[in-house]
Write a protein that binds this DNA or RNA. Structure first.
Length: 558
RNA sequence: GGUCUCAUCGUCUAAUGGUUAGGACACCACGCUUUCAAUGUGGUAAUACGGGUUCGAUUCCCGUUGGGACUACCA
C-alpha cells in the first residue's frame, strides 16, 4: 500500500525532488525571549484594507510588540482570479498610514520584503507547498481527486434532495481510495486533479479546543475532504496557512471569527503533518446596523469599511487606532483617562479580554475619541497634520494655510493648551468650514447677511457699538483688562454688564446685556454667531484685519 | 435548511452566587460663561423570555426567541 502511495505521489509531483527535511532545515526555531509572540497579518490582495482587517492587524501587532515578538506581513495571493492590480501596495500603504508597519515580511511601501522565513508572498512559495503536500500524499493523508465541478454539483444536488449534509466526505468521497492505475490513466489523459485531505473525522463527531479569545469551544469535527491544492497548481488558504504558519513559526494566529468553522480542519492538518499547531485567536467581527438588523461591515456597501475613508475625512490615525483598541479591550478607555499623554505601547492588551460578540461600529464614538486626540495636540502639530491632510485631499485649503502659515498656526492655537481646552475638531476636513472665515479670501465670499445683529439690539445701536469698539480697542490690553473695558463700553451704551444684572432689572432698564455687545463684534469679525473666544480671535486677527472687517460691517448696518 | 456561536442601558462595555447592576459615548436638565465648544452637577435608560439548581441567579444548567458566522477548486 505504502508503495502505491509513493507511486501516486510521484505521478502527481514528478518535479518535486526536494525533501521536507531539507526545507525544514531552512526554517529553524526563532531565537526570541521567553513568551515572545510571533503574529502575522495575512490578507489577500483583493482591494482596499477593511476596517475589520485593520482591527485584527492592530491586535496582531500589539501582541507581538508587547511581548517583544515579531509581527509579520504576508500576502495570500493564491486566488489569481480575485487579485487586483497593485493589491500588495494597497495593503502595505493602508497599514502604514495607521502606523502598523511589519517587523518582517512585506515592507511598508509594498515593494520588497525582509526576513529569513520568506518568501512572504504565497505565489512565490508554490514549491514549498508542493513538497509538503507530496509528503502528505505519501503518508496517506491526502489524495488526488478528479471530480469535475459538474460532478460535484450533482452530488450536492443529491445530498440536498436527501436533506443530508453537503460536501465531499465519507461515502461521498469518491476518489478517496483511487488506485495507482486510475491516477496514471487520468493523468495521461491530461486531467488535472485537485488534492484533498483524507480526513480522519467521522460525521457528527465533536471537536474541542481552546481559543485564546473565546475560551473553550466545542465545534463539529472536520470530516470533509477539503481541497488543499487546486487544479491550477495553487494551494488553497487552508494548506497555505498551515505550511506558512508552521515554517514561519507563528505562535498566535489572530484572525476574524469567520474562520472559526474551519479551525478543526486546520488543526487536523497540523496533526496530520505532526506539526505543533499555533494558538488560535478568533476575533469577532465589526458590525453595522442596517435597517434594524446587524450585519458584517460590508466592503461594497459601506464607505466606512474602507480605512482610506478615515484618512480622507482627516480623522487622525491615532483616533482610529484608539477606537479599535477600545473595541478590543474596553479597559483601554479607563487607562487612557488615567494616562492622557502616555504612548499607546504602554497599554497592555489582553487577548482573553477581547469582546466575544460582534460590536456595532459607532461613528459618533470614534469622532468623540478623535476630538480628544486632537485636543491633546499643540498648534504646531495640528498645523503639520492639517497641511499634510490638505495636500492630499483639499488642495485649495492647503494653499490657503501654507500661504498664511504663521496666521494659520495662530488660528490653530486658539484655546489650545491651558485648561480651557477646545474640543471641537473631530476631523481635519471640518476645518475649512469651521475656521475658514479667519482668512480674508474665504471671509470675503461669505454672504454679508452674516453681519446681521440680534433684533433686540438693532442695527443703529450695533453700528454705534462698533464705532466705539474700534476707538476703545487696545491690542496690548490683557484679557481681563479687555473684558473690563468692553463691559464698561457696553454700559456706556445702555447694556448691562452681565446677564444676571440684565435679568434682575425691570424690563426696559437696559438695551441688552454684554452678551449682545459681544455678539455684535463677533458677527462683524466673522459673519458668524458661533466662534471661539472673542479676545483670542482679536489677538490672532490683528488690527488691520479687525479694522477692515468692522468697517465692512458698519457699512452693511447703515 | 444544517452546523457552530453569541445575548447587560439606544451604542461600546464592567461586575458578582448576595451591589442602590458601575463606567464611556449619545440624549435631557441645571450651573459656569461674551456665542459655540469645553467644563461642573444631576437625570432618563439595561441583565431577551420561560423553566430549573439554590436560602438567594444577571451570574450555573436546560429550553425558547433573537442576532451573527460558516455551509466554494474565495480568502
Amino acid at each position: 500500500m505504502s508503495t502505491d502511495l509513493q507511486t501516486i505521489a510521484e505521478l502527481l509531483f514528478p518535479d518535486v525532488t526536494e525533501s521536507p527535511e531539507a526545507i525544514l532545515a531552512h526554517y529553524p526555531a526563532r531565537n526570541l525571549p521567553v513568551g515572545a509572540c510571533v503574529t502575522r497579518y495575512a490578507p489577500s490582495p483583493t482591494g482596499f484594507v477593511h476596517l475589520g482587517s485593520l482591527y485584527t492587524a492592530l491586535i496582531s501587532k500589539k501582541i507581538a510588540d508587547q511581548t517583544k515578538g515579531v509581527f509579520i506581513l504576508r500576502v495570500e495571493d493564491t486566488d489569481k482570479e480575485r487579485e487586483v492590480e497593485n493589491g500588495i501596495a494597497l495593503i502595505a500603504e493602508g497599514l502604514h498610514k495607521f502606523g502598523l508597519d511589519s517587523d518582517e515580511g512585506i515592507t511598508a511601501d509594498g515593494s520588497g520584503e525582509r526576513g529569513v522565513y520568506g518568501p512572504y508572498v504565497q505565489s512565490h512559495r508554490r514549491e514549498l507547498y508542493k513538497v509538503f503536500i507530496k509528503e502528505l500524499v505519501v503518508r496517506g493523508g491526502a489524495y488526488p481527486c478528479f471530480c469535475t465541478p459538474e460532478e460535484l454539483d450533482s452530488v450536492r444536488a443529491t445530498q440536498e434532495l436527501q436533506k443530508i449534509k453537503t460536501g465531499y466526505y465519507g461515502v461521498w468521497a469518491r476518489h478517496r481510495d483511487i488506485t495507482v492505475e486510475e491516477v496514471a490513466e487520468r493523468l495521461a489523459k491530461g486531467e488535472k486533479p485537485v488534492i484533498r485531505v483524507r480526513s480522519r473525522g467521522v460525521e457528527g463527531q465533536k471537536f474541542s479546543f481552546k481559543d485564546a479569545v473565546k475560551g473553550g469551544l466545542t465545534l463539529t469535527a472536520n470530516d470533509q475532504d477539503a481541497i488543499l491544492f487546486k487544479s491550477d497548481g495553487y494551494p488553497t488558504y487552508h494548506w497555505a496557512h498551515v505550511v506558512d504558519d508552521y515554517l514561519m513559526k507563528t505562535t498566535h494566529v489572530i484572525r476574524g471569527e469567520e474562520w472559526l468553522p474551519s479551525a478543526p480542519l486546520h488543526i487536523e492538518l497540523f496533526e496530520l503533518m505532526n506539526w505543533k499547531a499555533p494558538i488560535y485567536c478568533h476575533v469577532s467581527l465589526i458590525m453595522k446596523l442596517d435597517g434594524g438588523t446587524k450585519r458584517k461591515l460590508s466592503k461594497r456597501k459601506d464607505p466606512e469599511a474602507n480605512v482610506e475613508f478615515y484618512a480622507e475625512q482627516g480623522i487622525p490615525k491615532e483616533a482610529v487606532i484608539e477606537y479599535l483598541m477600545n473595541l478590543a479591550n474596553s479597559s483601554f478607555e479607563d487607562w487612557r483617562r488615567e494616562h492622557p499623554a502616555a504612548p499607546m505601547n504602554e497599554f497592555v492588551l489582553k487577548l482573553e479580554k477581547i469582546n466575544v460578540s460582534g460590536a456595532l461600529f459607532d461613528m459618533t464614538k470614534l469622532l468623540d475619541i478623535s476630538k480628544n486626540v486632537i485636543s491633546r495636540m499643540n498648534a504646531d502639530e495640528v498645523f503639520a497634520r492639517v497641511l499634510a491632510w490638505a495636500e492630499e485631499y483639499d488642495a485649495k485649503f492647503a494653499r490657503l494655510i501654507s500661504k498664511n502659515a504663521e496666521y494659520a498656526l495662530a488660528i490653530f492655537g486658539i484655546e489650545r493648551g491651558g485648561d480651557k481646552k477646545r474640543k471641537d475638531i473631530a476631523a481635519w476636513s471640518e476645518l475649512d468650514g469651521s475656521v475658514g472665515y479667519f482668512f480674508d479670501e474665504v471671509f470675503d465670499l461669505l454672504p454679508t447677511e452674516g453681519f446681521d445683529v440680534p433684533e433686540s439690539v438693532g442695527r443703529a445701536a450695533a453700528a454705534e457699538l462698533l464705532e466705539a469698539f474700534l476707538l476703545a480697542y487696545n491690542p496690548k490690553a490683557s484679557a481681563d483688562d479687555w473684558l473690563a473695558e468692553m463691559k464698561s463700553l457696553g454700559v456706556e451704551h445702555g447694556f448691562a454688564a452681565d446677564t444676571k444684572q440684565f435679568k434682575a432689572a425691570p424690563p426696559g432698564t437696559y438695551r441688552g446685556h454684554f452678551g449682545d455687545v459681544a455678539m455684535v463684534i463677533r458677527r462683524a469679525l466673522t459673519k458668524r454667531a458661533q466662534t471661539p473666544d472673542l479676545f483670542e480671535m482679536l489677538q490672532v486677527m490683528g488690527e488691520r484685519r479687525i479694522q477692515a472687517r468692522v468697517a465692512q460691517a458698519r457699512a452693511f448696518l447703515k
